[in-house]
Structure formats: structure tokens, C-alpha cells
Nucleic acid binder design. Sequence first.
DNA 1: ATATAAAATTAGATAAGACTAATTTTGTGT
DNA 2: ACACAAAATTAGTCTTATCTAATTTTATAT
Lengths: 217, 217
Amino acid sequence: MYTLSEENYLKSIYRLSQQPNFKITPTAIAESLKNNPASVVDMIRKLTDKQLIEYDKKKGVKLTPVGLKDAVLIVRRHRLWEVFLLEKLGYHWDEIHDIAEELEHISDASLADRLDKFLGFPEYDPHGDPIPKANGKVPKPYSVTLADLKTGDTCRVAAVKDTSSSFLQYLQKLDIGIGTNIKLLEKIPYDNSLVISISGKESTTVSQKFGENILVD
Amino acid sequence: MYTLSEENYLKSIYRLSQQPNFKITPTAIAESLKNNPASVVDMIRKLTDKQLIEYDKKKGVKLTPVGLKDAVLIVRRHRLWEVFLLEKLGYHWDEIHDIAEELEHISDASLADRLDKFLGFPEYDPHGDPIPKANGKVPKPYSVTLADLKTGDTCRVAAVKDTSSSFLQYLQKLDIGIGTNIKLLEKIPYDNSLVISISGKESTTVSQKFGENILVD
DNA sequence: ATATAAAATTAGATAAGACTAATTTTGTGT
DNA sequence: ACACAAAATTAGTCTTATCTAATTTTATAT
Ligand SMILES: [Mn+2]
Ligand SMILES: [Mn+2]
Ligand SMILES: [Mn+2]
Ligand SMILES: [Mn+2]
């Protein structure tokens, strides 16, 4: 159906489209794929010809209904494989993303659905991201971040925005995972650093960037 | 490490090398990969440069120790994924080969070993082919075919040589699978057709080609 | 409004892997 | 040894996807 590259572009565009009010430019796509804007311009032409995206200079890139449907199916496969790797093969949550990045491209009509069933129809992947359903419906993702809370608020970690191993390993070190309870003790006005209590334990200070990459419930 | 194409060539050369006294020529490789001899010549050069194979005009293509080791690891992944697809996801044995053909290329250092453990260290894949061990040792494959038997002999189906869906579906129709008992009732001298009894039931006639593609115990 | 910077695009190059068509080498039968 | 066929190889083309460098367009700041 699609080449590996086409699928990676579709997925990248989909991910960028999740950021509200964000204009999806060639540069943004290039950054997200760690490649060159010139290459992106080529692929934009190709995907436009295939009617998977529309490109308006003013509005940026937008997925067509067909492009969206297929992008969502790739995301579905990615997240299902992540669940498999963690739950069945015993990988840690900082190791699974790159492998799923390859597995998501395996094309077989019934593979995702069989995997879904085998895994017991999980709702969320190991990073807390919602797993699109077979019909293409995507459960609403979490949207409030730790950095959005007010002093004194308590929350449950629901998902992580950043899935890089450096971030995930840091979380591991802090004993934070999906489900961990966090209380915001103080917000440092100077640089918006956050003083938090993890699982009721003594306080720790984390950066604003850190807080913005944790989605809470 | 290797490109998709390189891996497919390595695996194809390995498979051909399993046929005793068979000279592995560019044409043979081309046939096995359903591509063009000219393309094969290019790849022979590439793999030779990488010291994965040696090519002697007289003796044909041969895997070097390194090439052999890596080819075996690809076969290991292929066969492990086939077990997974059949046992865990409920595919039938005629559907798994093509999917495993893609899955075998997923490159992660510990993936095959974790999958192996998850599956309970299976000895044989769903077609009866031995699964190479993590250390690269390959259990001895079955070698006697149904066509090798003498009239009156009884055997157990141990493996199938041909994994095409047309062959596997035919076997399914005849109620033959790994483990099925077959008795050779008669060999027709004219064209070596085989009259057999499957699981003790009434007799069926199959072709010589059919018999040569069933390995027995 | 104009200079400057940033972003987008074009032009041209490269690499992998496949193909077809032409040519050369090898093998076989007489 | 010679003729013919088959196999191997070379030459040249194509597609996909990437890059760098040059150019054009768009945005921003004074
Ligand atoms: Mn990917
Ligand atoms: Mn994830
Ligand atoms: Mn393959
Ligand atoms: Mn098999």
C-alpha cells in the first residue's frame, strides 16, 4: 500500500496535527523526522498527488479524510506493538518506541486486530497514549499537564508526552510511572520550576519542561 | 546493520545452500527471489565486498562464516515469528509465511531471544522446520520425503518443504498436518504417483511432486 | 518601506535496488 | 573443433528517497 517513508510522513503529520493551533510547515515536519526540509517538500508533493494531504501555503499541511484514517491505523499498530513488547516480551518502557517504529509498518489486513484481541483490547499504550480502535475512533487523549496545575493540587500521572529514552529513564529514576500520584507543592516564579511530592514522599524539584511533558488525570 | 534486500539475499542463499550438491548460481538466486539475474550479479558484488559471501565461477556462491551466522539468525527470527503468528494470533499455517517475511527484518538485539522465551523455546516452526538456537546452532532438519518411502511403509508427517499457500491449502483439504500418519499403499510406476492412506482412512492418490515436498519421520 | 532573517522551494547530486537490452562467457552436442 | 544455446555480465535506465547549495518567497524589525 504505502512505502515506509510515506507511512512515517503520514504519522508525523498526524502527530503534529494533534497540537492545537499548530501550523504544520515543511520545517516542522523535517524537524519531527530529523530530515531535510527539501526532502519534505518532495514528499508533500507526492502525498498531495495521492490525495492523502492538502497543502495550503497559509494554513500548512492538513490530512485528508483518507490520509487521517490511514495515519490513525499506523498509530494504532504502533501503540499495540508497544503494549506487546512491554507486557509480553518484558521490555521496559524506554526501549519499546524504536522497535514499534519498525513493527508499525508490517502490513497485513488482520494483524492489528488479532494483536489487539490477543492483548485484551488495551485502551492505552505504555506511555498513556490512547490506542485507536479498529474502526478508526481515537479515544480522547489526556491534555492537562503537570505544569498546568495550581499549588496544592494532587494528580495521577496519566501519560507522557515525550517518549525519548532520556526522559523515560529520568522518570524511572524518580520512581514516576503511569498511575503515580503527584502533589504540586510549589511553583518557583523565577523559572517555573516545580516542587513536587511523588507518591507522598519527600519533595523533589523538576523543570518546567519536565512538567509540560507529563499529562495528568 | 543490513538492508532489507541484503537480508533477503542472505536468507535465499542460505536456503539454497541447504540443498546438498547444489551449485548456487546467479540464475538460481534470481529464481528463488523472483527477480532478475542482472540484479543478482550486482548484489553478489556487494555481499562479496562485505565479506558475507564468496563467489567462485566454478563452485558458485558460498556463505562465509559471518554470512552464514547472520543468515541463520534471520531464519531464526522468521521461524519464531511464524510460531507466534500461529500460536498466539491464531493465523493458519498458509497465512504466516508472508507476514514473517517482513517481521524477520525487525532489528533489535534482544527481540528474537525474548520472543523465543515467550514462546517457550519451540524446536520447530509450524511447517516443521527447525528453529536455529540463539547461539546459531541449527537442529538437523528432516530429510526423508514421502516419495522416498517404500510401499507398505508408514510414517509421520514431520515437515513440509514447500510453504506456498496453494500447497498448504491442499494439505489442509486432505487433512494432512504436522504429525499426521501416512501409509504408502502403492507407487504407480508410470509417473511415480503415490497411493496413500491418511490417518488410516481410505486411499488417496497424490503426485510425485507432492510426495517430494513432504518430509517424514 | 526597507533591510534582514527565516522559511520554502528549486536544481542538481547521490545511493540503493531494481529493470531491459546488448554483449560476453561458458557449456553441450555433433 | 565448431555451432548453438544457456548463463553471466555489462551498460544504461528508472524509481524512491535522501542530501547540499542556490534561489525565491515570506515574515519581522527597525
Ligand atoms: Mn516507523
Ligand atoms: Mn507510545
Ligand atoms: Mn524477508
Ligand atoms: Mn516456516
